[in-house]
Amino acid sequence: MRIAFLVNSIEGETANYTTTHLALSALSRGHDICYLTPGDFVLRPDDSLMVRALMLPASNYKKAETLYKDLRSKQTSVETLDVSEIDILLLRNDPSEDSVDRPWAAHVGAVFGRLAAARGVIVLNDPDGLARAQNKLYFQDFPASVRPETLISKSLEEIRDFIEQQKKGVILKPLQGSGGKNVFKIASPDDSNIKQIFEAVSEEGYLIAQSFMPAASEGDVRFFLLNGLPLQRDGRFAAFRRAPAKGEIRSNIHAGGSAVPIEVNDTMLSIAETVRPKLIQDGMFLVGLDIVGDKLLEINVFTPGGLNNLSQMYEVDFPLSVIEALERKAETRKGYRGTLNNRELATF
């Protein structure tokens, strides 16, 4: 089958990204792959949906570094394909990366993903579900039992009042954002730089303030779910702790955080079970839960990363499990006599 990966840009990819390792696993299983970026869709007057797909010059890659090198080389070619020539479209673009400099590109995955799904392509995660998850407000749709106390506002007065009620302080960040950008810890409403922090974060729109959990100083747990269930392979869960660098409150790997092995406990499994119905309802195939203690900090439904770290850490090929799941979906659609819509297939 042919799998297409929609990414923000080819230049922004790296050999270490989960997307690269998913592509490598797909090729190892004998599948064709191609890459798309937000500007590569074409809807023609006859209502046919075309894509300008970036094709790699080879298919027998053994290392992610070699695949990545070829992806950015002049040997790649662009082919115009009818979207029906793609079996599965994986939406791996992060809207927050484009929201400021290329706002036109931020929602392309959801918009054209719907059109592709209507033409028979299996699109994951489901574009209708992703459209509802464009910012952290989506997180508020999950049961309150797994969420820290939260305020969403653009009012400094409201935020000061909220901080005053939180004895352990708050974490302040933009509602539309990812990757740990503009994330601050504020201990009290009297902090001398609270106004400057507020101004910096509010430039990006609404702010989200969450009660600070002391356990966060040890980092958070990235826990992958596949088809609504914990991702497991060879007896290992796809989960690790992201420990922050010294002096950092952010545990993101690209912000200096380090990946540490963990044992998944009953609390983490209970959180996963609590959010599973909503994820299945929204057609979320692959997601990353960020857990601190008995609470969720975030649910990454766009570009959950870290599968490559996990594979190295536990010597388990987690990306291969994802590709095998895609194969089952394609076979299910092919052999099913009734009608299966894209959302049903997303978590089938």
Score class of each variant (00 low, 15 high):
163 I>K: 00
154 K>R: 15
165 Q>Y: 02
200 A>T: 15
159 I>H: 03
166 Q>E: 13
233 R>P: 07
170 V>M: 08
160 R>V: 00
243 A>K: 14
174 P>Y: 12
256 G>D: 07
253 I>V: 13
179 G>L: 11
151 L>R: 08
255 A>I: 01
135 N>L: 03
134 Q>C: 10
129 G>N: 12
186 I>W: 00
246 K>D: 13
147 R>A: 06
125 N>D: 05
215 A>V: 00
148 P>K: 00
127 P>G: 00
176 Q>N: 14
138 Y>P: 01
257 G>P: 11
224 F>V: 03
157 E>R: 14
242 R>N: 01
192 S>R: 12
214 P>S: 09
231 L>P: 04
171 I>Y: 05
125 N>K: 04
137 L>F: 15
227 N>A: 15
210 Q>H: 09
208 I>E: 03
143 P>L: 03
174 P>T: 11
186 I>Y: 06
205 G>D: 07
220 D>C: 07
140 Q>K: 12
181 K>M: 14
143 P>C: 05
242 R>Q: 03
259 A>I: 08
189 P>M: 04
158 E>Y: 08
232 Q>G: 05
137 L>T: 11
145 S>W: 02
149 E>I: 15
260 V>D: 03
257 G>I: 06
210 Q>I: 00
226 L>N: 10
197 I>K: 04
206 Y>R: 13
212 F>P: 06
135 N>G: 09
187 A>T: 04
203 E>H: 15
244 P>K: 01
162 F>I: 02
230 P>Y: 08
149 E>V: 14
261 P>Y: 10
193 N>R: 13
234 D>R: 13
185 K>T: 01
186 I>P: 03
250 R>L: 05
171 I>D: 09
215 A>I: 01
190 D>P: 01
172 L>G: 00
151 L>T: 04
216 A>L: 13
203 E>V: 07
132 R>D: 07
215 A>Y: 05
127 P>A: 09
180 G>D: 10
211 S>F: 02
203 E>G: 05
221 V>R: 13
229 L>W: 13
201 V>S: 06
173 K>L: 02
230 P>I: 03
131 A>K: 11
137 L>C: 06
125 N>H: 12
155 S>I: 13
202 S>G: 01
185 K>F: 12
225 L>W: 12
169 G>T: 04
151 L>A: 01
149 E>M: 01
203 E>Q: 12
210 Q>K: 08
186 I>Q: 01
142 F>G: 03
134 Q>Y: 14
255 A>L: 15
